[in-house]
Design a binder for these strands. Structure first.
Lengths: 356, 356
DNA sequence: CTAGATATCCAAAACGTTTTGCACAACGCC
DNA sequence: GGCGTTGTGCAAAACGTTTTGGATATCTAG
């Protein structure tokens, strides 16, 4: 097999790879063109409909396309077009249901506009994050949805944000203004909890917060304290179940909780608190009410079901992505703009009026 | 339009877009070359280390690279190289923790070899799946990890499998031989459950299966039935929580469960079953034992904690991807090969000896 | 019968890299 | 002084598209 691609009129041959017949080079537009006796230009026009082509010629081209199983190389197309129709989604941990939901929203929004999503799972690893940021600098992706509040990257992010399309989701990176932001209304969530507990008659509460560095956690706490208008004892945890357990157990040992309600800044810490209370022989909600934040799946399945604030993780991902793409498709770097999405208080079995 | 890029020293502007100075074309290798007074070839060699370059020249080039903030366009690089260092991961639902774990394993394995992962979330939608399969045909991705057992795609998949690197994860597509496969040992999982329930003294069990079309579900059922060696009532569900609830509730209405144990083919259906049982006033595990499959996160967080079979979702994703990449990096289409990963029975609070 | 419009298709440039063959000079060796 | 060797860097081809300015033939109107 000589593998000659006799160009449509001149006797020129496109030198293929005669030697190794093993790996069959996929058909290119040139192959189609010469097989159909037209120029690559015409093939392109037939396929894109970008310019009219004689119907007879077009039919011939299409038949060759089928016969050869020709599929345009998207790489070459992207190179020419200057964009790839792919964006990145940077998150710390896809196995965390919150981020998985967020990712689903992002993927849906991207799919709607024909974009693909590259999963950038960082595990809070700065090197890993850097590698993924490199994808945007090398223009392999058209934009990035950034939902990973790992502090060390702020500097780098800042430098990129003016040059490339980037949207912040869920967590606004402290001190990073002028960006596209979609986040849940953490402050309102805290407020709802405060109002709920106050309405039930509670006047003294324990609040388990997340690390001070995360703005979302601070917002939740602020909203709560303002609305509760009672005494609030604050303890700083790390959003993990163990820390909720540890903090509550410690207080119980030191001579009693001295509170009628516990508000944990996320469901996992609330679970820890529940365990500690149960271990101490206290009953929820009879002796103590407990409220969480996030509404992860287990929250509604434990007993008693956990009163918590439902975060619109899916919507956060979807909104951030849709907003980002709105600018990406127009080749613009997005302006500063904030979207705060509503949260919802789910009242379940873990809260009740304080024992009198 | 002359399209000259002499901009660096002469005051000439970029012919590309004089009109909108807003969008500055990123520096190309030509820009660097002319600014450093060398050829693009030399720049390429300095950056890749592919051929030796005089240290003085190299230093000059590097300095220009920094000054201009040059980053090679990965698209052009990929076009030339003939591969993108990106693979696809096709799954039905990323918000399902099982697939999220699997995705994490895939991402980790890919990252280890410098590959990126495009998240292809199908929601069991054939069109969506087709679009993503198009990415491999258009060679935008170098390979695909396929973990979405939606039946309609089998035909298309079959056609692709000989031509492109594809690995099956978790679910082997029925009748699709000659592929790279990584899956959990579903049959052994079913067997472990059967042995466990039999050892506790159960002799009559209700088994909630998944759709018959999925081999994994069939394997689980077969393993269970063989090991349990008692009477098994079988009901077909669809792996969703609602179906577990519906099936059990229906049986209870029709005049009693008449079984001392329920084995659901996945945790979600087990959750549904638990709810139905609780609603009927039955106590788990006192009146009925319940076992699930998958060991999703919520399984250990509900009360009573669910006895279930731990699936190595992470390992399945990681193994499938690592195997796939082994061939992708060598430019080969992978041969037939199967990796069956061990499962583990997690005995928790939802199982006990039958009431006497 | 002729000028302009229309239909049809092609050549060449452009996207931004990497790779390969070659040119040229300087050097060491016999 | 000739010859292989090494060091250095360039030109050109190749990857596979899309886009744009024409070129040529055919048609239409006056």
């Amino acid at each position: 097999m000589t593998r000659e691609f006799r160009s449509y009129e001149s006797g020129r041959t496109y030198a293929g790879n005669e030697d190794r017949a093993a790996v069959r080079r996929p058909a290119s537009i040139k192959d189609v063109a010469s097989a159909a006796g037209v120029s690559p230009t015409t093939v392109s026009h037939v396929l894109s409909g970008n310019r009219p082509v004689n119907e007879l010629t077009a039919a011939r081209v299409r038949s060759v396309v089928n016969r050869l199983g020709y599929v345009p190389a998207s790489l070459a197309r992207s190179l020419q077009a200057g964009s790839t129709s792919v964006i990145g989604l940077m998150i710390p941990d896809i196995s965390n249901t919150f981020f998985a939901e967020l990712a689903k929203g992002a993927e849906d929004a991207a799919h709607d506009l024909g974009y693909g999503v590259i999963l950038c799972n960082t595990e809070f690893d700065a090197d890993r994050e850097d590698r993924y940021l490199g994808m945007i600098r090398s223009r392999f992706i058209d934009g990035m949805v950034y939902a990973s509040g790992s502090p060390p990257s702020r500097r780098r992010l800042e430098a990129l944000m003016g040059k490339f399309p980037i949207a912040l989701a869920d967590e606004e990176v402290e001190g990073l203004e002028g960006a596209l932001i979609a986040t849940a209304d953490h402050e309102a969530g805290g407020r709802l909890v405060g109002e709920h507990l106050r309405a039930l008659g509670h006047r003294r509460a324990l609040m388990l917060t997340g690390p001070r560095a995360l703005k979302s956690g601070v917002d939740r706490a602020n909203g709560f304290v303002r609305a509760f208008r009672g005494e609030v004892v604050e303890r700083v945890g790390d959003f993990k179940e163990a820390s909720g357990h540890r903090l509550v157990a410690a207080l119980l040992q030191e001579g009693g909780l001295d509170c009628t309600a516990v508000f944990a800044a996320n469901d996992l810490m609330a679970f820890g608190a529940l365990t500690a209370l149960r271990e101490a022989g206290l009953s929820v909600p009879r002796d103590v009410s407990v409220v969480g934040f996030d509404d992860i799946r287990a929250a509604s399945q434990i007993h008693p079901a956990l009163t918590t604030v439902h975060q619109p993780a899916y919507d956060v991902g979807r909104t951030a992505t849709a907003q980002l793409l709105q600018y990406v498709t127009r080749g613009e770097v997005p302006p500063a703009s904030r979207h705060t999405l509503p949260v919802e208080l789910k009242v379940r079995g873990s809260t009740a009026p304080p024992a009198r």
